[in-house]
Design a protein around this nucleic acid. Structure first.
Lengths: 205, 205
DNA sequence: ATTGTTACTGAACGTTTGTTCCGTGTCAAG
DNA sequence: CTTGACACGGAACAAACGTTCAGTAACAAT
């Protein structure tokens, strides 16, 4: 069968899975000989072949001539399984249930250079599921689209709010109705500065 | 000066930092020669020496006789800066503002082996800041404390609720008042199974 | 019947890499 | 002054490692 798409074969998927698992467990990707040994290959060339295929499909990156130079694209750290529909019956982490793998790190953070995390104080954004004590992931940028959630500096205080800028005024709107919008007009003597926009939220229970 | 504690010297810290950075950037720890080259050493022995010291201090683990067999203990990836109080004035990411570094991965996931992620459907838990479409981090375990948020299997359907078990009944309580509690008693013909408890929540905006 | 892809075995080459032994110099404590 | 930890240079060895070439077999499409 001629293979055209970007999808790996079952055998190739097993190689990719092993690379991911090994990287997660040991902190480094496996060598080609470790892969061969784990999957029962007698020749390292079998691995080289699969690795080349995975690279063609864009599922794997390589650092040539370097030991352990394999990296699964997408989720950097192998991540944990995402379960879609959980089927009734037996083991939850059965292969059929697993929709993919996901590492919160790379999922929440695209550009580590310009990203920071801010701990939220106060409950003004509970309407968006942002509670006091939550961590918001913020990408630094001085401008924001109308309606997006931003971290703004208002008179020496950082605050998380919805951004609504008009021609004549800027409004910082809370999603908790108990909090009135903050309105800033030119000549108020107040300063507003967008520090960045909120791209993610997470909390530990 | 006789060195006694578990603290590394400034030079050792630099080696450790480089190992961490390299592991994050490339997906694999560096070789001893890469470390030597990066820090300006002419001899690999200088690295071996520092690595041995870091290992004694418990800051580094080694996989002997294996290429790239170094792993910084504790925080795996250096992560993004956490900002505490954002001071007025200049650069946000100034050193004074940074409270620490945090990687969502290792923050949310302690035991990768028994952890999975589930995408939430429905708004029954909005009271706890868990919205439809959010990802919940679940640690697999068959029992739960009263009041904790669990993923439970009720008649072939996985659901996220508060767990409240009495002697005579089990109640799955939503945090959105629009949803009545689900009560299961022995002899109902219904089945309840705790798949795991929710240890974290995250979402992308 | 031929072509092309997948999926390997087997062997070999050259480099990379961890490791070790020996030696030099600095600096602070006893 | 001696001792001991720290911080390196230089050189060398054996094992680990990525890579490549040659060849075999199954299978589907043309």
């Amino acid at each position: 069968m001629a293979r055209i798409g970007n999808n790996p074969t079952a055998r190739q998927q097993k190689v990719l899975d092993y690379i991911r698992r090994h990287a997660q467990r040991t902190g480094a990707p496996p060598t080609v000989r470790e892969i061969a040994s784990a999957l029962g290959f007698a020749s390292t060339n079998a691995v080289a072949c699969h690795v080349a295929a995975l690279e063609r499909h864009g599922l794997l990156e390589r650092r040539p001539h370097s030991s352990r130079g394999l990296r699964a694209t997408g989720s950097i750290s192998p991540g944990v399984p995402i379960l879609g529909r959980v089927a009734a019956g037996q083991p939850i982490t059965a292969q059929e249930n697993i929709e993919g793998y996901l590492a919160p790190d790379s999922f929440l953070i695209n550009d580590a250079e310009s990203t920071f995390v801010l701990r939220v104080q106060g409950d003004s954004m509970t309407g968006d599921g942002i509670l006091s004590g939550d961590y918001v992931v913020v990408r630094r940028q001085p401008v924001a689209e109308r309606g997006s959630i931003v971290v703004a500096m208002v008179d020496d205080e950082a605050t998380v709010k919805h951004w609504q800028a008009d021609a004549d005024a800027v409004r910082l709107v809370a999603s908790n109705p108990s909090y009135p919008p903050i309105e800033i007009r030119p000549g108020d003597g107040k300063m507003v500065d967008v520090l960045g926009i909120v791209t993610g939220v997470f909390r530990r229970l």
